[in-house]
Computed example of a mutant assay.
Amino acid sequence: MSSTADKSKARPQQPQESSGWFTIPAPLARLFKKFPLLTYPPNELPARSPDIRNVPTLYVFISDEDALKGLPSFNPSCLKWQVSTAYLETGRGLVHRTNPTSQTFLKLAGVDFCLRSSNNHASPTGALPFLLPPSTPSDPKSQRPIPSNKLEQYGLDNGKSKLPESLGARIEAYESLIDHRIRNAWLYTLYLSPTNTKLLSNLYIVPATSSRPVRATILYQLKHAAELEILKSTSRDAINPADLYKGAKDAFRALETVLGDGEWFFGSPLPGLFDATVFSYTHLILHDGLAWENRRLNDILEEFPRLVSHRNRIFQRCWGSGE
């Protein structure tokens, strides 16, 4: 008995290995000891997203080249706000009902800003446009994005130009014409008209991916979402292009009537948000650089020379001559 006890005392005791879900297997543990993990510091922000912004940055649908030149966005919702100083489309559909004039409104308000190309998936708000105000690292509040529904107030608070007061209920009927009749015709022309499929792809699909299957999927989703949006707005079971274009023509006629012989809508001495809203569609409809194949909406708008002149005045005021 004593011999057995002595032998057990002589044996070195093996350490008990713990077991469980978070236990590193012994072979990996020995490997990590030879090659310890190295944690690298976080990457710096890219140059296009600086820590310190001296001027606001407006993120819109636009090419990188046009953003550097400060040119108008090809998306009505973004262009509305872009003009105010100087949508829409996601892989999941037309889910955003934002005002289409931000880029224009900011320019009219006299807000100095720079443009950046973006998309809804990259937006912290889930939609374009949005604006990042001037910021410093020591001010966390300055890092908060301003969504499209607050851009009007931002332009009024920070612009150098005094804009006309909001007309309130007076313009609701005319805004409805833009949001429904003109917008429906726009959606059909760009998204559902077969002859404009190439233009739609070049604007929203080709820049997003080089994968053909993904492009085909996005194209289907955009067209399907546009169809649903039009059917919902018209309360119809099927889309009738002739009715859509007739509705747009009636809307343009009403807008030209209310514009009258004045330079700006409702007799205002200065262009305001409603002018930017109208421009966001009239400019893009008349924009030859978009290479429209189906020009039905273009032909309709050209029947209203006062609206064409209004579009030209806004463009001249915000971007100067030429396109």
Rank of each mutant, 00 (worst) to 15 (best):
Y204F: 14
L222H: 12
S211V: 01
E302R: 15
E172I: 07
D250R: 09
D250L: 07
P46C: 06
D275P: 09
I218W: 05
K223D: 02
S102G: 03
L222Y: 07
G247K: 05
A248D: 00
I314P: 04
A122G: 09
R116N: 03
I171T: 14
S77C: 14
S73M: 01
I24P: 08
L203F: 08
E44H: 13
G262R: 15
W21V: 04
D237W: 14
T136D: 15
F105Y: 15
E17R: 15
L156P: 00
G289S: 07
K33D: 13
N184P: 02
D261F: 10
Y188Q: 04
F61Y: 14
S123I: 00
T104I: 12
N99K: 14
K107T: 06
P56Y: 09
P207F: 02
A208E: 10
S135P: 06
P36Y: 03
F130N: 00
P129S: 06
S211D: 12
C78K: 02
G20V: 01
Y174G: 04
K69E: 11
H121K: 07
Y174I: 02
S117G: 03
L58M: 05
I52K: 12
Q103T: 03
W264Y: 15
E229F: 06
G168L: 11
T39L: 13
G272S: 09
T85P: 03
D51K: 15
L79C: 05
S193E: 04
K9T: 10
